[in-house]
Design a protein around this nucleic acid. Sequence first.
DNA 1: TGACTCATGTAAGCGGTTACATGATTTG
DNA 2: CAAATCATGTAACCGCTTACATGAGTCA
Lengths: 212, 212
Amino acid sequence: MAHCSSEALGPLVERHKEETADVADDRRESALPSTAYAVLGLLTMTGEVTGYELRKWAMNMRYFYWSPAQSQLYLELRRLRDRALVYERTEAQPGRPDKRYYTITDTGRRVFRDWLDHSEVGPPLLKHSVALRLFFGHQTSHSRLREVLTQYAEWARRQQQELSALKGDMLPALRYSSIVADWGVGYFAAEINAVESALASLDAMDSEVGES
Amino acid sequence: MAHCSSEALGPLVERHKEETADVADDRRESALPSTAYAVLGLLTMTGEVTGYELRKWAMNMRYFYWSPAQSQLYLELRRLRDRALVYERTEAQPGRPDKRYYTITDTGRRVFRDWLDHSEVGPPLLKHSVALRLFFGHQTSHSRLREVLTQYAEWARRQQQELSALKGDMLPALRYSSIVADWGVGYFAAEINAVESALASLDAMDSEVGES
DNA sequence: TGACTCATGTAAGCGGTTACATGATTTG
DNA sequence: CAAATCATGTAACCGCTTACATGAGTCA
């Protein structure tokens, strides 16, 4: 019952090897992680900002791209500075660390555009812990599964609302962000819908058991 | 035009701090990464397998949960063995590394069920590089955006087909997997739909420019 | 015979998180 | 006056990837 035959399995093909490698590596010094490009992209929209401010902007992207930890952002900005992709203006402060303002440099703009225009696009990375649990549903109870699913649906609804609110607050000039926001709203709608279907399937399984 | 005011931004609230921490940590030795639970879960369905075989199974979950690198899987199995959550049977082979077969232990089953039943469910992790690029659309051309989007839609369609095929091949006894598969199919449908909407938005922007 | 599958492993390094530390400024 | 915000930083650690290495069996 809880045992799988392996007939459905083909041989183990190692895919996505060269796909993930950046095609344009050869013409740049070395590839940057995607977070770096996210930061550069943000800097093309914001003007001079501190790491702290930038983090707030980064959090607006969390609906389709996770936002990195604070320490990671500061680290990334220093790396970009070392590569002269951003310019750092420091403001001395008595008795505590300098305040650092960042702007994107021309080189940074060029590198960013190059990435946008020529870099290989990989598939999205998804780690869906709710789906994972449902997948292993045979090891738990339906009541627990329902609990997990409804909790997730509530979260998705909140995200959807936040995203809609954010879109309303945004300047209409930011067209691309609003297209992405629509995408996100649709995505959450699909998730909510999927949860409802899953709950219905659980109901169906329960009543089957009742009949037999 | 490409400059944001920061009015839409609230203060930087540090959320999801205790949310990510595992509530049930205190009653176990120490928490395991989610990959470990995925492996344990797989072992509740497969019986005795080698690391190599297990990897093939793990790849069936790649539609909603990324599949780890080969080396990581072997590492994970050894860790689970060290914690006595899986049992390792070695088969000596002349002139090369032992062949290792794994089965889940009773302790492993208990730990896995405990995780399923009591652990806090975090939100899914999503890094959507296509949406990221679209978000920064003001820095590239519409033709490039269209290229990226259509490429992604093709990929999503392929995934959808693979997933449907997989579902067809699967034993009907595996109900939960098939519920998750349906979820996945719907997810890819939503993605394809979102891409089409985005393409339509780009068209609309182009014709606006033509009119003005 | 050569390509592919089966099967396991090591080493280096990176991206990222968690936790901690500090202190001025603003706000209720 | 206390709490939250602004603002930067360090150290330890972990999950995971990449790249490499090995070798037997199978099949065209």
